[in-house]
């Protein structure tokens, strides 16, 4: 496809090249332990988190510095979300949820740096996160509630005839949860980055043909606008992933509606 585009107008479309995974050192094939760009950008996310939450809060000051107040704000934000959505019993699982939130948030934001790599745009990463949440929540539900957990699928207030049908639908929707949970995150991030790349491919049009006088400024403006949208999406997707985790956790803690 790239070759076709090149032969037509000289434009090069590689919207998905930015998601490529390559070994950092040398050309050797990627084993499970190979340090790749995934490793690099995840490590950068960890460094940013450590910088914010360890070095930023080093002062332990009662009157917080700017960085410390950001850390406290993030902590309070997620803590309140867990408390509001999952209830008081959910607070026990706050560190896990906060870990997932921070990882997604920092991966998303670091991925917005031009030329960077976004771990959360990969199905493999988000699927592990999503299925991890799904499995943990399901196991937790059975451990805490035993067979009562199945009450989640058996609507007591529905007419008796409809109950099996509703149970089947609920069961399907329950098992679709991790899929939509993970694909939502990866798809959103991938879509935004790919769209930016597509507009970026239109940007050098001015070097190729006369219509570029119109196309190039429009595409640069579009990149700017979509970049702003992507900053929003980066935060909202982390927020949505976290709040859905809390909702699923609530279902496990209180299966009766």
């Amino acid at each position: 496809m790239a070759a076709e585009a090149q032969s037509e107008g000289g434009l090069v479309f590689h919207p998905l090249d930015q998601f490529k995974i390559y070994s950092l050192f040398g050309e050797n094939p990627i084993q499970w332990y190979t340090p790749t760009n995934v490793t690099l950008w995840m490590a950068l996310a960890v460094f940013c988190i450590v910088g914010l939450f360890v070095f930023g809060t080093r002062g332990r000051s009662v009157i917080p510095t700017r960085v410390q107040s950001v850390a406290e704000l993030a902590d309070g934000f997620i803590y309140k979300m867990v408390e509001d959505v999952a209830g008081c019993e959910g607070v026990k699982y706050f560190p896990y949820i906060f870990t997932v939130f921070l990882f997604i948030l920092f991966s998303n934001f670091l991925g917005l740096i031009p030329g960077s790599f976004t771990p959360t745009s990969h199905i493999a990463v988000t699927a592990i996160l999503g299925f991890g949440v799904f499995i943990c929540v399901t196991v937790l539900g059975f451990v805490l509630n035993g067979a009562h957990f199945l009450g989640l699928f058996w609507m007591k207030d529905a007419p008796l005839v409809l109950r099996p049908i509703i149970a089947v639908i609920e069961l399907i929707s329950y098992f679709v949860r991790p899929v939509s949970h993970s694909i939502r995150l990866a798809g959103n991030i991938m879509a935004g980055h790919a769209v930016i790349k597509v507009f970026a491919a239109f940007a050098p049009m001015i070097l190729i043909s006369g219509i570029g006088i119109v196309v190039t400024p429009v595409s640069v403006l579009a990149i700017t606008a979509i970049y702003g949208l992507e900053v929003l999406v980066a935060f909202i997707q982390a927020y949505v992933f976290t709040i859905l985790t809390c909702v699923y956790l609530k279902d496990a803690l209180h299966p009766a509606h």
Binding site: S180, I183, R184, G187, N188, A191, V240, I243, L244
Partner: peptide, 11 residues
């Protein structure tokens, strides 16, 4: 949550 569910299908 509603926005996320609606948007997921578009994704």
């Amino acid at each position: 949550i509603g926005l996320a569910f609606a948007e997921a299908l578009g994704i």
